[in-house]
């Protein structure tokens, strides 16, 4: 049902400073050349966030993603959710995707909890009827009760997280992309959240989970990718990859 093939997919991000973002300086650079500007002050820096990554994922794959900060995990997740088109190489992604990279995406703080459930559902690709259908499920899981009729600016950050998590996990995609979302909220909620994620992971065809917590990788995943400096270092069973990753960290 779902199928993913990455073939030498690379992402080169151009990072502009304020000078590189101005049309004025771009015109100056093109017309006057280097004459007026200091050549060392490069206003554009290119970062290779992903370097020729190739792998294939099929139905049933539960893939963990490990690597230090800045290793390209989130960039890879964005490529997998079709948000970043590779700047070279190809990424073929078949299946309906839901990504929980930023839980609070598109929340309107002045709107009520119920309004936000509907807005967020539509962003996740549901129609009006389907959005109405998930309301009872969200009510039950978030346990926010009467707070759902209040504007969400009155919520604490924990309550906001509960609502966002409840809505985002109420839809069942073919490909599920998670970025460090396990273990949200207070202890009681974290436990229920994990149970719900487990159910969701089981229903999805392919799951990606980026995490710094080796225990959750071992519990949820049957395959693990290790990223370092934008390059895919290793692809294999969680135990082997985690061992190699840990060994690399010690050196």
């Amino acid at each position: 049902m779902a199928h993913i093939v990455l073939d030498k997919a690379s992402v080169a991000l151009a990072v502009y400073n304020s000078r590189g973002r101005a049309l004025k300086s771009e015109i100056l650079r093109r017309t006057v050349g280097g004459g007026l500007q200091n050549d060392r002050d490069s206003s554009v820096q290119v970062i290779r966030a992903l370097n020729a990554v190739s792998f294939e994922a099929r139905d049933g794959d539960r893939i963990g993603l490990v690597g230090g900060n800045g290793a390209g995990k989130t960039t890879l997740l964005r490529v997998l959710s079709r948000v970043y088109p590779p700047t070279s190489g190809t990424a073929t992604i078949e299946g309906r995707i839901s990504s929980l990279i930023d839980l609070s995406m598109g929340m309107d703080t002045d709107a009520s909890g119920y309004d936000n459930i509907e807005m967020r559902s539509i962003m996740l690709g549901l129609n009006h009827k389907q959005a109405q259908a998930i309301v009872p499920d969200v009510e039950e899981f978030s346990q926010l009760g009467e707070f759902l009729s209040l504007p969400i600016r009155t919520y604490s950050s924990g309550m906001m997280l509960r609502l966002a998590f409840a809505v985002s996990t109420a839809v069942h995609p073919d490909i599920l992309i998670l970025d460090e979302v396990i273990g949200v909220g207070d202890a009681a909620f974290a436990e229920r959240a994990e149970k719900r994620l487990h159910g969701m992971i089981q229903k999805a065809s392919i799951m990606f989970l980026a995490s710094h917590d080796n225990a959750s990788i071992q519990r949820f995943c049957n395959r693990t990718l290790w990223m370092k400096g934008g390059t895919l270092m290793m692809d294999g069973a969680p135990e082997e990859v985690l061992a190699a990753y840990a060994a690399d960290g010690r050196v």
């Binding site: 959710s81 079709r82 948000v83 990504s99 930023d102 995406m105 598109g106 962003m123």
Partner: peptide, 8 residues
């Protein structure tokens, strides 16, 4: 930008 960076 926050929506563009998460939904294709």
């Amino acid at each position: 930008d926050s929506i563009i960076r998460q939904v294709a």
